[in-house]
Structures are given as C-alpha cells and as structure tokens.
Amino acid sequence: METLVNSGVTFVFALFVWYYNIYTLPGYTTSYKNRGFSTFRLMRSLLIGLAVMFLLAYAQQLLLSSINFGPDMLMVEVRGILVNLTFYMFLHLLYQGYQNQQVSIELERTQADNLGAQYEMLKQQVNPHFLFNNMNTLKAMVETNDEHTVEFILKLSDFYRFTLESRKNDLIHLSDEVEILTAYMFLLKARFEDGINLVNTIDPQYYSSLIPPFTIQLLIENCIKHNIVSLDYPLQIKLYTENEKIIVENQLQPKKSQEFSTKVGLENINQRYIHLLDQKIDIEVNEKSFKIKLPVIHEHYHH
C-alpha cells in the first residue's frame, strides 16, 4: 500500500510539473531575451513544485498515518526537485530546438524574399537597356533618312508587344527565345543590312529547354556594342549547342574607340543564371573569337 501511494504521489507531481512547465513556456518571439535559459522561470518552477510536493506529501501522510512525516518530507522534496529539474531541462532543450527551427525558417523566408526582389530588379534592367539601344538605332536611321525607318518602327512596336507578354516569366522555352531573336534580327538588319549575319545551328532537341527571356538578344547587343559592324567588316555571329551549353560566338573585330560600358548585359545574364540554376555563364576569349556559354536548363531535370 505504501509503495502504491508513493508511486501515485510521484505520478501526480510529475504530471503537474510537466504541464506547468509547458504552460509557462513563452511564446515564440524574435526577441533574443526569450530564447535563452531563464533562471527566473526555473526558480519559480522549483518553488511552486516544492509547495505542490509539500501538499501531496501531507495528503500522503493523511492516507498513511504510519509514515513519519518529518524525515520522509526531506526525501519527498528532494525527489520533487529532481523530477522538476529533469522535466524543466528536457522541455528547455525541446523549446530551444523549436526556437532555432523558427529562426531558420524566418531566415530562409527572408533570403527567398531578398532573392526574389533581386531577380525582379534584374528582369527590370532588361527592357530599359533594350529600349536605350534601339532608340539609338532609330535615331541613327532617322538622321540618315533610312528608307526602312517606318518599317523599323512598326516592327519595334510588334517586338515590344511580344516582350511585354514574356517579361512576366522567369523562364521561357528556347523556341520562344529564338522567335524573339528572329524578330530582333529583323530590326538589326533594317539598320545594318549585310553588316551583320547570324547563323543558328542549335540542335532542335534543345528547343524545349528553358532560358531566361531576352538572354540571347542581350548577348547580340553586346556583340554589336563592342565590335565593328559594317558592310566592309560584317559581324558574323554563330548560335549553336555543345556539351549541354548554348553558345553565342562572334569573331573579334573590336572598335577602335570603345563605348562606355554600364556592364548591364553580361552581368545581368550571369546573375540570372546564378539565381535560377546556381551556375555561372562561361566566357571564353581568344585572339579571333568571343564565346558565351549558357548552361542548358531542362524543365523536368532542374524543376
């Protein structure tokens, strides 16, 4: 009978201490002061535990009058302190793990929001850069009374309508990018005529892969910006695939006086690939050619 009562008292006390410590745990907060070990909460828990254990021990004395209340009381209180300490430390460890998990989730959410904002800024850089270059092209055509000026304006309008439809996407199919490029090359041909030539030999199997919108168009702009483009020195550009890379290659015929570079083009493309694929673009330069190698993004493999 004595063993049964002792076990019952210990069980009731353990149950009380468990739920009391759970109830008094603070809610999650970003404040650092609520994340560490609290001596105040521990002392409060121990004092309340001592009081409850005293009451339970007194109840035990009423049930078992044969027990010497004085000597047994010290043993009961020590047992209560040990139980309370064990439960408190165990719950504290669980709580710390929960707090750390919440902090990690918040950090990941913040990083994701920051990356999303950065990528939106990268996408917004594309259209102003494109508009700036084509306004310069249109200005040159107007100044030289080019007969293709009106057609250029109409095609530019159609092209911009197409770009506005695509800009909301982070990725488009390579086939759509080639369609954008075809329209863009028409605009370039209107200005440079045979001074620029693009040869596209991309393997058709890659047309279903993905690419950030206007990537190739920006690379073509970069070729024009840094190289001579004229009927006497036509700029030859090749577009092909090799070893899971989309390659844009042009022969080097640099301008004598280089234009001021804002470095929007290549850095924009590089940052978009880092964001989307965690890979950088490859740049290879030799005496004769300049190559940009873009990693192929497969829809199902790269999710």
Rank of each mutant, 00 (worst) to 15 (best):
L56G: 08
I283H: 04
G116L: 10
L164A: 10
Y119S: 11
K263Q: 15
F16A: 09
E151R: 04
V199E: 12
Q205D: 07
K263H: 15
M121D: 09
I237Q: 04
F40L: 08
E147I: 11
K245N: 15
F90N: 01
I216Y: 00
N6K: 03
Q271E: 15
L56S: 07
L210Y: 10
T149G: 08
E106I: 00
F13E: 03
Y98S: 00
L63Y: 14
D176C: 00
L85S: 07
T149H: 04
E193I: 12
L82I: 12
K293V: 01
V83E: 05
L235W: 09
Y88K: 02
K189I: 12
V229I: 08
L138R: 03
R161G: 13
I224W: 06
Q102K: 02
D232P: 03
L174F: 11
I297C: 02
Q258L: 15
T182L: 08
A117W: 09
A117E: 11
H302A: 14
F90C: 02
L62G: 00
R35N: 07
F69C: 04
H303L: 08
G49F: 05
F90L: 07
N114H: 09
I292W: 06
K288D: 12
E259M: 04
L56C: 10
L74D: 05
Q118F: 13
Y184W: 06
P295H: 08
R79S: 14
S45P: 04
L64T: 07
D282Y: 03
V264Q: 06
Y184F: 14
T24H: 08
Y32C: 07
A190I: 00
P71F: 11
K255R: 15
Q111S: 13
Q124L: 13
H300E: 13
F162C: 06
L55F: 11
F130E: 00
H300I: 13
Q124V: 00
T163E: 10
M53W: 04
L154K: 08
N197I: 06
M53I: 10
Q271L: 09
F186Q: 12
Y20T: 03
Y32K: 12
L164G: 03
I180N: 03
T215V: 06
M75R: 11
I216E: 00
S31H: 13
G70Q: 06
